[in-house]
Design a protein around this nucleic acid. Structure first.
Lengths: 248, 248
DNA sequence: AGATCAAAATTGGTCTGACCAATTTTAAGA
DNA sequence: TCTTAAAATTGGTCAGACCAATTTTGATCT
């Protein structure tokens, strides 16, 4: 890669003793990235792959194993090995690397705040018509389920995902995805503990979402950021309040 | 999928058919996180682990495999399996999840900018004496190596790492770590292509670093953010300029 | 023909035992 | 004590077998 010449940096490549399984992993990842192996699709049985690759079953399995434990593939006994649904793909390794042994969830909340406010900013500047449509749809979904916490939460999550997507920044999207996924559980737990307040919170939340959307729609980045900032702060406080209220 | 009717969220746990290897993975990860398996340390041979866990070698290997391919463990034939050095631990899974098939590096630069400006902000508010000392040391390191691009770059990187650490936000630290690591290569390539300009860039950079540090030292979050913003914008522009200059 | 359901085939998960090549340990020889 | 060659150890791979879950098949009954 490096054009070298004077190059102080290593002109020599590490000799890599070919590890069979790694080579297979590489091929499979490429097939997936290339879209040849679509999400949900079943790949040939292990015994088939053995013949195709010309290797033993051990090697095939050792190649599949990391991909499975990273959530890219999914093994179902008796059925076969499948490419995981796009959502959640590569989530596990991300979560492993990012969220392993955290003390509390303060870091989580703080990082989320940081990412989402910036996401609102960029979404306002870059959202395409289809992004706006998707965001609006999620708002409609929330409005339709004000009294069903679980469904409301799903659409709430969708709202934030779509904003992240609208930034056209893949890294930002993935980050928000994984962090939101982690926080989601926490939110759900607290909401089910105080179901009577859920609807009130939902109404407040919905209003704020509309505000954010309006700012994004008019490409007002600063307003979008402010609105998102306000929304997340409110939501976080509400959830904390639910928690402390419960404890007393 | 939707957790059904009245019962908002599932009070029941998914029955997980125990996958032997997954259980082992969990145990190993825990041992590593708990520090019982320190970086660099050798773990028992596979055949030993078989006896200890009371499972076949296949299962042990299938447990080790994901950890190895994620860079957490390292297998050396004839020698044993070792816990990887702390640096870069869990980096690979993070990088896999976050940085796989990106189009360009615009997302990278943009995300870095977002993370680092926020890091400066929080570092200013939370830096402990030892953090300030570490940051100052990295600045000194830069000052001492103005004419050695490679060394300068190392201390430059250290500066940003230490700021990330000073935020006391683990997630932010890990993120900056992995993204910076990715960008680092890119920076190095460009700098070695125009070694004559390296020193001038280094001097500018150093001055900006001092500015950032001053703001952090006085706990002026806004100033720290502004200074970091300015620094990263300058640096990015300079590197872009180097690149276009080379192409002509 | 269509539906039902039990037997057969397929599939991922695990176990056992074996061999290879790289490495480490041991022990013999100088 | 130092060298060095043989032996033991170790991760990587292969082969064959069995299990349990699942899918497919095919015979039976309606």
């Amino acid at each position: 890669m490096t054009p070298t010449s004077t190059a102080p940096t290593t002109p020599f490549r590490q000799i890599k003793r070919a590890r069979v399984s790694d080579a297979i992993v590489e091929q499979l990842l490429q097939l997936i990235s290339a879209g040849i192996l679509e999400p949900g699709k079943r790949l040939p049985s292990e015994r088939d792959l053995c013949k195709r690759f010309g290797v033993g079953r051990t090697s095939v399995r050792e190649a599949l194993k990391p991909l499975i434990s990273m959530g890219i593939l999914e093994g179902r006994v008796g059925s076969g090995t499948y490419v995981s649904a796009e959502t959640g793909q590569f989530q596990k390794p991300l979560a492993w690397g990012l969220l392993r042994d955290l003390n509390g969830q303060d870091d989580l909340v703080e990082t989320r705040h940081m990412l989402e406010t910036n996401a609102a900013h960029w979404a306002a500047l870059r959202a395409k018509p289809e992004n706006l449509a998707a965001i609006e749809a999620s708002i409609q979904g929330m409005a339709d389920h004000l009294q069903q916490p679980a469904e409301f939460q799903d659409h709430d999550a969708a709202f934030h995902f779509e904003i992240a997507r609208a930034t056209q920044n893949q890294i930002l999207y993935r980050l928000i995805n994984v962090i939101r996924g982690q926080i989601q559980t926490w939110i759900g737990e607290r909401l089910t503990l105080a179901p009577n307040r859920a609807e009130a919170l939902a109404r407040t939340s919905l209003a704020q979402h509309r505000e954010i959307f309006a700012a994004i729609k008019t490409a007002d980045a600063a307003a979008a950021r402010t609105a998102m900032d306000h929304h997340i702060q409110t939501a976080t406080q509400d959830l904390h309040r639910l928690e402390t209220a419960r404890k007393r």
